[in-house]
Design a protein around this nucleic acid. Sequence first.
DNA 1: TAAAAGCCTACTTGTTTGGTAGGCTTTATT
DNA 2: AATAAAGCCTACCAAACAAGTAGGCTTTTA
Lengths: 135, 135
Amino acid sequence: MLSKKAQYAFRALTHLVENYRKGPVLIADISKKKKISLKFLESILLELKKNDILDSKKGRGGGYFLKEHPSQTYIATVIRIMDGPISMLPCVSLYFYQRCKNCDEKKCGLHDIMENVRDATLKILEHRTLQDLVN
Amino acid sequence: MLSKKAQYAFRALTHLVENYRKGPVLIADISKKKKISLKFLESILLELKKNDILDSKKGRGGGYFLKEHPSQTYIATVIRIMDGPISMLPCVSLYFYQRCKNCDEKKCGLHDIMENVRDATLKILEHRTLQDLVN
DNA sequence: TAAAAGCCTACTTGTTTGGTAGGCTTTATT
DNA sequence: AATAAAGCCTACCAAACAAGTAGGCTTTTA
């Protein structure tokens, strides 16, 4: 399951897509509109900024906004930033790979199954973008 | 990601598939062969028994064994017992559904995407069985 | 120069994960 | 009937993580 953090991130990003190119949006505005704890949201947006999904402007008239066009940011990217691996096993993860102990990948049946699941999942999540959040 | 518990469960189940119809297998044997902490494994097997995946015999000559033929137990079933929901959002889960607050499922873009992911995932996990763990 | 806004560090609280300890109960064998 | 083998049950524990809070610092613009 996606963490609350990731779910909030998507709610916030949806708002930013809806207000794309209308100038910076206040954290407080997003917090109110989407009913997300202000301080928690603050840390989420900052993390998204540090990972090049968002950009911000400080001081009066500042706020957050999307760094790129909504169609350029993939859902998979956001999930990886917020929650880490998408795969069900470390040994099939593309971005967070870890060898499994006591198990030979060549002849591990679960490995194969989970590789299939990963491919099917990524086929969706690496093609859908923030644009798809608003239809 | 699958929890260690679920991963251990699959390792243990693999062993039980390999020894299907050779009589009850000792927890201690599985623990040694698959290098899983004995006591932790004990609780895992018990949980699988309570959920009708395994059966056991007590006393001397006892042990654990599969309740049904390996081809009759789906990977998805085991995951749900060990880890709960497979879906990425509560509002798209079939077995653990929960309405999401502050979000209208009819017009929530993320909902649609995650429904697709769920379908793609279950298409695999609800067709592969314990038999597939050993090729 | 003051107010607005994001940035940063630290803390808190509750839950989950992964595991350990120890005794109880059932059962097959002698 | 006794005993040893085996699973069953209850309780506990430490570390990590999730979700959120608090409060002050820095930058920017009017």
